[in-house]
């Protein structure tokens, strides 16, 4: 039962991504062509609001529901891995019109073709694990 809240929040995520059309390949194309504000609006409002929430959590040392402090861990400093990894991700994002979340939302929406994308995303993750120590980080 302790997991049911994640099911509900996950469903909220799936609904909001569908209803805002952020799962649509068309919207991702429109974004990369800088031809509408829509996707920038979604991400912009999400980031600014989240940044305010994170700042408030830090300032008032707000705890989680179990009473533990909410901690933020700085990511390792590097440029190569974030830039190269990011570029590869971006190539796939524009091609398939889906990042990992929207992939599965699309499957639920009824697009079985996204099942193929998801299986290959798993394969891509596996390949990263195999070559991890041989590529710059």
């Amino acid at each position: 039962m302790k997991f049911i809240k994640y099911l509900i929040v996950g469903a909220l995520f799936g609904i909001v991504m569908s209803k805002s059309e952020a799962i649509s390949w068309y919207r991702i194309q429109e974004m990369f062509r800088f031809q509408a504000f829509h996707m920038y609006g979604i991400i912009g409002v999400a980031v600014v609001t989240s940044a305010i929430i994170v700042a408030l959590i830090k300032k008032f040392k707000i705890r989680d529901m179990a009473g533990n402090p909410i901690l933020f861990y700085p990511k390792n400093k590097s440029t190569a891995r974030y830039l190269i990894g990011g570029i590869l991700f971006g190539l796939g994002w524009a091609l398939s019109g889906a990042c990992p979340g929207p992939m599965v939302v699309n499957i639920g929406y009824g697009f079985m073709s996204f099942g193929v994308i998801f299986i290959f995303a798993l394969l891509g993750t596996f390949l990263y694990g195999v070559v991890k120590d041989k590529i710059p980080h």
Partner: peptide, 18 residues
């Protein structure tokens, strides 16, 4: 579909997140 998925999966883990 295959290349799109492959690039997203590899790139997300390489970059440490999506």
């Amino acid at each position: 579909l295959a290349f799109g998925g492959l690039l997203v999966g590899f790139g997300a883990r390489y970059a440490g997140g999506c």
